[in-house]
C-alpha cells in the first residue's frame, strides 16, 4: 500500500503539484472571465493524475480545493472530497490504460464526472440541504418543487452538469500532454501511461464524437429514470 503511494512521488511530482494547483486556479479564472458555462477547474489535477498516479492526483485535487478555499472562496472548502476523488479516479483510469487515445479520454472524463456527481451529492444534501450557492441549484430547486426527492434531485442535477465539464477537462489535459516535448513528460513516475497509441488521429476524433453522443443518450435515459420513477 505505502509503496504504491510512494511510487507516485518523485521530486518532479512534488514540483509539479504546486504548478498544477496554480493551473487549476488560473484556468478556472480565465474560464470565468470568458463567461463560458463550464468550470474547467481541475485540468491540473487530471494532468498530475495521468503523469504521476492516482494518489498524487488525489493530493493535488485536495490541496487545490483547500488552498482555493482558504485564499479566495471559503465556500469551496467542504468540497475537497470531490476534488480528491476526481484526482484519484483520473489516476486509476490512466492506470487502466484509458489515457491513450481520444475516445478513451472521453470515457475517462465521463467516469470522472460520475464519480464527482456521486461524491458531491451527500455533501450538498447534508451540508447545504440540497441547495448550494452555485447556479445549477436552480435545476435542483425546480426538480424538488416538482416533487422529486432531494437526493435524486441533487444527483440528477450533478449528473447533468458534470459530464460536459469533466470530458472537456480530460481532453484539455490530454492535449497538454500531447503538446509537451517527450523529454519533459519522461521525468514523471507514470509517464508511460499517457503515451498515445498508434492510429489515425482523425479517425480517433470521430470515434470520440460518437462516444460522446452515446454517453449523452445514456445520461438522458438515466436521468429520466431517476426523476420520472
Amino acid at each position: 500500500m505505502f509503496d504504491k503511494i510512494k511510487s507516485n512521488f518523485n521530486t518532479q511530482t512534488w514540483v509539479l503539484i504546486p504548478i498544477a494547483i496554480a493551473i487549476n486556479i488560473a484556468i478556472g479564472q480565465i474560464v470565468g472571465l470568458l463567461k463560458l458555462p463550464v468550470f474547467l477547474d481541475s485540468i491540473g489535477t487530471v494532468l498530475v493524475a495521468a503523469l504521476c498516479g492516482p494518489w498524487a492526483g488525489a493530493l493535488t485535487g485536495t490541496l487545490s480545493n483547500l488552498i482555493w478555499g482558504v485564499t479566495m472562496d471559503p465556500n469551496a472548502l467542504p468540497w475537497w472530497p470531490v476534488a480528491f476523488m476526481i484526482g484519484y479516479m483520473a489516476g486509476r483510469m490512466a492506470e487502466w490504460g484509458f489515457f491513450k487515445s481520444w475516445w478513451k479520454i472521453v470515457v475517462t472524463g465521463f467516469v470522472i464526472a460520475i464519480t464527482a456527481a456521486i461524491v458531491s451529492t451527500p455533501i450538498s444534501v447534508y451540508l447545504y440541504g440540497g441547495i448550494t450557492s452555485s447556479g445549477s441549484s436552480f435545476i435542483t430547486a425546480y426538480l424538488m418543487q416538482t416533487g422529486t426527492d432531494m437526493v435524486a434531485a441533487v444527483f440528477s442535477t450533478n449528473f447533468l452538469v458534470e459530464p460536459v465539464d469533466k470530458i472537456i477537462t480530460a481532453m484539455l489535459a490530454f492535449s497538454i500532454i500531447l503538446g509537451l516535448p517527450k523529454r519533459i513528460v519522461g521525468g514523471y513516475p507514470k509517464s508511460e501511461q499517457a503515451q498515445v497509441e498508434g492510429g489515425n488521429t482523425q479517425q480517433q476524433l470521430y470515434i470520440a464524437v460518437g462516444v460522446i453522443v452515446v454517453l449523452i443518450l445514456l445520461a438522458i435515459f438515466v436521468i429520466s429514470k431517476i426523476t420520472g420513477g
Binding site: 518532479q12 514540483v15 504548478i19 493551473i23 488560473a26 484556468i27 485540468i43 497538454i176 509537451l180 519533459i184
Partner: peptide, 10 residues
C-alpha cells in the same frame, strides 16, 4: 500559460 509553466518544472 500552461506550457510556459510546465517547462519550468524540471
Amino acid at each position: 500559460l500552461v506550457f510556459g509553466s510546465l517547462v519550468e518544472v524540471e
